[in-house]
Design a binder for these strands. Structure first.
Lengths: 233, 233
DNA sequence: GAGTGGTCTAGACCACTCA
DNA sequence: GAGTGGTCTAGACCACTCC
């Protein structure tokens, strides 16, 4: 009944989760303060603090100074998706990765792209289109705009052999990013490249990045309807 | 040039990000140890540790004992999406929330649903279908299966007035969950309820939950193509 | 074996927020 | 004003992993 090892913040977190699941602490209820818990668990307040912060980050607890810590009424569970390199994503499925450059030229951003990145619609950008394949089958159609002002080297990048995705990862750091997921109907070019009927439902992921408030790149990644984004908690 | 306040782990994190962005530390490079950084920043090792751990969690750094800390070669940036209650999601947009129950009956799970949850296809489950509206317009079509074995009270739940989404949040805790996002073409029922042409591209989010390995619920949430899931880093 | 990160402690002060 | 969480410190020991 004694020989306990020193408690870790993980142990404490699990114990607290158990209490919530068993309704010892109901949703919305106030739980004891850090000091009280530290005394109960026989550890320091810092350890309790770390456990509680982890649970708060996961959306299970809500904490406010002075008000204390309570069990979330609606566990705003958050889903975490890792966004790997397309190549790694494909190879992780055990498929062979393929890459095909479709086009690469300098062009005006246009209103749609300019607005998204906060650039003028007449700004000159590098426009790259390419296709990623898994075992020879189209996997992702990539339509990317790169701001040469933020990544001057991009003009000379070897996009014939290296996908912009991969090249940018090691050549264009960013400090802020935005992701958008949505469904859409395949346009003419996308449908042709992905070998789908025009108007087919496609999964679209968009990514925008900035480095210190300077736009770096905007990419639209289009997948066939068989594509799934999965996350487990 | 001096009067510095005490450095916070945030300050340190930002400074490190700056160095990575400015190529002081290149991708793949080893950065100084915690002790060295603590000395440089003039703070304790614990503070440096916290900053580095945060960056490692964000996928920007990779840390290994004895090996040290290095800048990730491919920043496996992870996107975090919060999954709120539909009602909150709609109200957060400033729209008025509406709810309509479409059907609620006991039925066999069927192969598709059974397989996903690890139940037999002849298992009896509660099948609920409903619609969530924003300012009177269809926002989300919800098709849900509930395992009465895990949530016995569900049979008597007032789904006429409370959406299963909301009811389950406070009545069916879960320990494990799985999310899937994908694009699909609207089926007959979905199209009719969402007031879309049949075959329109729809955004589908599926959620499966378990409590201690016992399946709790499987829900398929269908949105019109205007729907977007956004996350900023 | 030795070096690096991982974690815990005990104590302190601060910042926010509620009453 | 007072109570709670947020953060920092200085020191310590441990666990993992590379050599």
């Amino acid at each position: 009944m004694s020989g306990k090892k020193r408690l870790s913040y993980r142990d404490i977190g699990e114990d607290i989760l158990r209490r919530i699941a068993k309704r010892v602490w109901e949703p919305g209820a106030l739980i004891p303060g850090e000091q009280a818990l530290a005394a109960e668990f026989g550890c320091s307040r810092a350890t309790v603090n770390r456990a509680l912060q982890d649970l708060a980050r996961a959306g299970i607890l809500e904490r406010r100074r002075k008000a204390g810590t309570r069990v979330s009424l609606n566990p705003v569970r958050e889903a975490r998706f890792v966004i790997p390199l397309v190549r790694h994503e494909i190879e992780a499925k055990g498929a062979e990765y393929g890459y095909r450059l479709l086009g690469c030229e300098t062009a005006k951003a246009g209103k749609a792209v300019g607005d998204r990145l906060g650039l003028d619609k007449s700004a000159r950008m590098l426009h790259v289109r390419c296709l990623h394949l898994a075992d020879g089958a189209p996997y992702q159609y990539e339509d990317r705009w790169i701001n040469p002002d933020a990544v001057p080297d991009a003009r000379n990048a070897p996009f014939e052999t290296v996908s912009p995705n991969e090249w940018l990862v090691t050549n264009a750091p960013f400090s802020r990013a935005e992701f958008v997921f949505r469904a859409a109907r395949a346009g003419v070019e996308e449908a042709a490249q992905l070998e789908l009927p025009e108007g087919e439902a496609v999964f679209v992921a968009e990514r925008l990045t900035w480095l210190a408030d300077k736009p770096v790149t905007f990419v639209r990644m289009v997948h066939p309807p068989s594509h799934r984004i999965v996350t487990k908690l």
